[in-house]
Design a protein around this nucleic acid. Structure first.
Lengths: 338, 338
DNA sequence: TTGTAAGCGTTATCAA
DNA sequence: TTGATAACGCTTACAA
């Protein structure tokens, strides 16, 4: 049989309310009874039933994480585990649990999210990037349910989000290549329907402009955040009359594809071609030479997102916030002539 | 204000128990009232409160996933996201939610697990491999709480687990190299305190024996499941008077380290050196040439583990089970002369 | 087929 | 500083 607060109360010779107070470390309790009750709990092996607690407290101390829908997003890109780590770190600190939600398609996902949101199984949810245009955002927003998006949403930029300054980050990356003497910088972008692609392209343009280098749209190619399309994108760049002397890819995975293509063609890195990626995942070390990458501080993104979310949960009237996580450029062999 | 079962009952002009029956699709309910109640729910925007349900049903339809403790395990090795995918797939099917648990150290983790287990926040837990010698296993086992380990535990091999036949898998990998004509096969192992390392070594030995090739312990070196130690391990093999003509690494990450070292030394793959890895992660495609790897079906491991766990939860007297997930060898360029 | 009412294990209010 | 007791929102005998 299960040991409940009642058993503890009986054993300690007090009322259940007293046990409850001990449980929540209420100050209105004498040291003596506190000890007495603690001892009874110990002896009986008591653990509070969280469902009961949640029911009456109308909160769960749980954050929902809406997972990327596609296997690729989840699996191929090492972004995901790292952002989870950051989220987990804060959750741990604040004593929150983490619930993972997913669905194979939009309908299934919607159902799953509604279940935990309206079912009050969590107090707020985190939306991992890649879904910055998700209808879910609007639904949650209209509902007034606490949530935070990792990655600035295109449709409702006024909701809570954490993101990098991608314009700035891309500017720095581009400037780095220019400083190294590269002049024809190819740009392997993701779909322009993603804010992140647009922003990074903008930073790239800005850096060129600052150095009075004309923007050449032939140098912009598009991939899909996977290795294969990075590979293809670079091959396309090579068909240009004047191929690039360097490449920025908006994701390490695509940068890896570029590196692979370059290797197959016996291009020397960085002499014949410099490569810069984004995200500073461990993938940068998975090729030779290692790849320079913009460190977007994935862990911090997760950590800050969780922090913001918990803050919103605990202060319902707090105003909405946008958190910018600073980036850095990690220079490695692939772009470093000197 | 929150809409509850009472509001629905009132609106539909029935008792709360009737609403509850509709909710659980009880057959003892007339079609007419069913419709009536459903309509009321619809109109009021009713969603069942899961805490209340869990409280009375004494179950949560939630599985706990005990995450790897170290960031490396979680992050560096792509095993993790893939096994989660498998778990998630089944959870989805069976309508279970997933709770992630972690702790930075053993004490913290223990507390977190106890909280959700004794707090009845989940009905069972999954232990991800890498912890096949965890004291947690014994604790949960003694407690009689449903759990499944991914990876056969060293200490209590009689608990529920799912794993591959690693002896067999390694046998096949070794035989493949022998069939290709390689004779001096280096073996980059993980720590021999792990069952998986022992098993894979055994399969290697067995294959050699079957071909009457003497086992040479100098060809066995040890790494730590990361790229750097794979790299170092291979360098060590090269100091042998007669270096290997091929290498099996018990993990793709280490195989990648070997590949890197070989590349730096201008060894041609597979002519000068063949490489075979384990796990068939996408990393095998991240180097040129792509690496042959034993596909241990990570997704299936997760899927089967969740299946076994849910079965144990729903049939408490079911006997313990060990599930073997079949492996395959994915031959790629790194080991394929022909 | 439906309704009544007693829990499930907590917290919170109000008295004492 | 403590104790009764009424919620919290649901399920489930038992009765009707």
């Amino acid at each position: 049989m299960n040991v409940t607060i009642k058993d503890v109360a009986k054993k300690a010779g007090v009322a259940t309310s007293t046990v409850s107070r001990v449980l929540s470390n209420s100050p209105r309790i004498s040291k003596a009874t506190h000890e007495k009750v603690r001892k009874a709990m110990e002896e009986l092996g008591y653990y509070p039933n969280l469902s009961a607690k949640n029911l009456v407290k109308r909160s769960t101390e749980t954050l929902g994480i809406i997972m990327p829908r596609s296997a690729e997003d989840l699996f191929v890109n090492p972004f995901f585990p790292e952002v989870i780590r950051g989220i987990q770190a804060l959750a741990q600190e604040k004593n929150y649990d983490l619930l993972m939600v997913s669905g194979r398609d939009e309908a299934e996902e919607k159902k799953a999210v509604e279940k935990i949101v309206y079912g009050k199984r969590c107090d707020g949810v985190l939306l991992l990037c890649s879904r910055t245009t998700d209808p879910l955002i609007e639904q949650l927003d209209d509902e007034g349910f606490p949530f935070v998006v990792i990655g600035k949403p295109a449709t409702r930029p006024d909701v809570n989000w954490v993101d990098n300054d991608n314009v700035q980050a891309s500017y720095v990356a581009t400037k780095h290549l220019l400083d190294q003497g590269y002049r024809r910088i190819g740009f392997v972008s993701g779909s322009l329907s993603l804010v992140v692609s647009l922003d990074r392209l903008e930073g790239y343009k800005k850096a060129l402009k600052d150095q009075n280098i004309a923007f050449n749209k032939d140098l912009i190619v598009y991939g899909d955040f996977d290795r294969e399309t990075g590979y293809q994108a670079f091959k396309k760049l090579l068909t240009l009359e004047e191929p690039p002397d360097s490449v920025i890819a908006v994701d390490d995975v695509m940068a890896l594809g570029v590196s692979r293509a370059a290797q197959e063609l016996n291009l020397r890195l960085p002499e014949d071609l410099a490569i810069v990626g984004f995200n500073n995942t461990m993938l940068t070390e998975y090729t030779y030479p290692p790849i320079t990458s913009v460190d977007i501080k994935i862990y911090d993104l997760g950590y800050q997102a969780a922090k913001l979310l918990i803050n919103q949960i605990e202060n319902p009237d707090a105003e909405r916030k946008h958190v910018i996580v600073p980036t850095g450029l990690i220079v490695r062999k692939s772009s470093c002539l000197k």
